[in-house]
């Protein structure tokens, strides 16, 4: 498949700070998820491919065309920025119709497109309210609306799900999936693995300005599985619990926390451990008060991968 967006050896630094380091990536049709913790370089990459910044080294093209100072390329790109910023003194309708003027549409078409985009993001009935008075979720949705109102072939969404309530997230995820079925190319960033997982199986892991790994969900899952999980189990009898797990080959290490009631387990096979724990609780009647997994998050996975 031909790359829609092609970045080759991209590097970008801000003074002494390296924002992106020798990144090469080809984005194909469909949904690609850019996953990484805050400050990983996702937004920098998105700004480079939308011509908002110029790479210090490397090249970036969209459909074979350069993006820096090439306004024609933007007819086919919709961009939703991460920042919660707007022209605050206008209504949602005025914001959209105002921005749609920049595509050279006739007034009737501008109105039609704005109405359709606001309808898609469920803001039709609030279109005449000032953006200043919108809730965080509504602001996020109007930002998405301005990115899709001109029906772009390529949609680039920087953290579009942040600030949305669960229902809003579900609707937006469905909308993004619809883009895919319409044959569009979507590049979406997030620092939350389940959000990206819900959108696509094609993931690019970004960390400290570098692409750490890229592949489909099973591959990323494998990487995550390889990461030793730390699980804390607070129990009425942690020593009895520990005794039951002695000799279990899936467990790498067991320690007791300072409170004397919590058993801290390190394992590569989290699901196996939980399965056995359930059995132990049921068979031996050991009371478990709390189970937590402090490092079961993306940051921990990244730290593990970087350390590897």
């Amino acid at each position: 498949m031909t790359a829609v967006i092609a970045a080759s050896n991209l590097s970008k630094w801000y003074g002494n700070v390296l924002g992106l380091n020798d990144v090469s990536l080809e984005v194909e049709e469909g949904i690609t998820g850019l996953l990484g913790p805050n400050g990983a370089g996702k937004s920098t990459f998105m700004k480079l491919i939308t011509g908002q910044m110029k790479p210090n080294i490397g090249t970036v093209t969209v459909r074979g065309q350069k993006v820096w100072n090439n306004p024609e390329v933007f007819s086919g790109i919709g961009f939703c920025p991460e920042n919660d910023v707007f022209y605050e003194d206008v209504t949602g309708w005025e914001f959209l119709t105002g921005l749609l003027r920049f595509y050279g549409y006739a007034p009737a078409e501008i109105r039609e497109r704005a109405a359709r985009a606001l309808d898609i993001v469920d803001l039709a009935k609030d279109k005449d309210r000032l953006i200043r008075g919108y809730s965080r979720g509504m602001r996020q949705r109007v930002k998405v609306a301005q990115a899709i109102a001109h029906d772009p072939e390529i949609v680039i969404l920087d953290e579009p799900l942040s600030g949305l309530d669960p229902l809003g997230k579900r609707k937006l995820i469905k909308l993004i999936k619809d883009f895919k079925s319409e044959g569009r190319t979507v590049l979406v960033s997030s620092h939350v693995l389940p959000e990206i997982e819900a959108l696509t199986s094609r993931i690019v892991l970004v960390h400290q300005g570098k692409i750490l790994a890229q592949g489909d969900i099973p591959y990323i899952r494998e990487l995550i599985e390889a990461h030793p999980h730390q699980i804390s189990v607070r129990s009425s009898d942690p020593r009895a619990l520990a005794a039951r797990f002695l000799g279990d080959r899936s467990i790498q290490k067991m320690t007791f926390a300072a409170d004397g009631r919590t058993l801290v387990v390190e394992t590569h096979k989290r699901d196996d451990f939980f399965g056995r724990l359930t059995g132990v609780v049921l068979e031996d009647g050991i009371e478990v008060e709390e189970i937590s997994s402090p490092d079961d998050n993306l940051q921990a996975v990244f730290e593990y991968l970087v350390g590897k």
């Binding site: 939308t50 011509g51 920025p81 910023v85 022209y87 920049f102």
Partner: peptide, 15 residues
């Protein structure tokens, strides 16, 4: 300053 520049320079407009 308001970070709204993104809305303008990602449109098909000569700077």
């Amino acid at each position: 300053e308001n970070r709204t520049l993104s809305y303008l320079i990602t449109r098909p407009l000569p700077k």
